[in-house]
């Protein structure tokens, strides 16, 4: 059985999903990051608040999400943290 993801891993999965697509609709992100609507909303609020992600609305009223430089920086830091925790078997 796979282990439950922690907060940091969920944020990482969300940012990777956005990064891969360059821009993504919230519903697609929900499927890609395997989250419920309620959880996605709460995590997205946090990501936007921390300026890891920005939201843009197109002329035809579609909402898209983009990863920011700060988000890219987080992903880089996360990789290092993951390497650290894996090396110590944490």
């Amino acid at each position: 059985m796979t282990e439950r993801r922690n907060r940091m891993e969920i944020i990482n999965d969300m940012l990777i999903a956005i990064q891969q697509k360059e821009r993504i609709k919230p519903t697609h992100l929900m499927y890609k990051s395997n989250l419920s609507h309620k959880l996605l909303k709460s995590y997205l609020e946090e990501l936007i608040d921390k300026e890891f992600v920005k939201e843009e609305v197109t002329k035809n009223n579609y909402k898209y999400l983009f990863i920011t430089d700060k988000g890219h920086e987080f992903l880089q830091n996360f990789r290092k943290m993951k390497e650290f925790t894996d090396s110590f078997g944490l």
């Binding site: 922690n6 907060r7 940091m8 830091n77 925790t85």
Partner: peptide, 8 residues
């Protein structure tokens, strides 16, 4: 630092 990020 990892704890501050992850709250684990």
């Amino acid at each position: 630092k990892i704890y501050k990020f992850s709250k684990v």
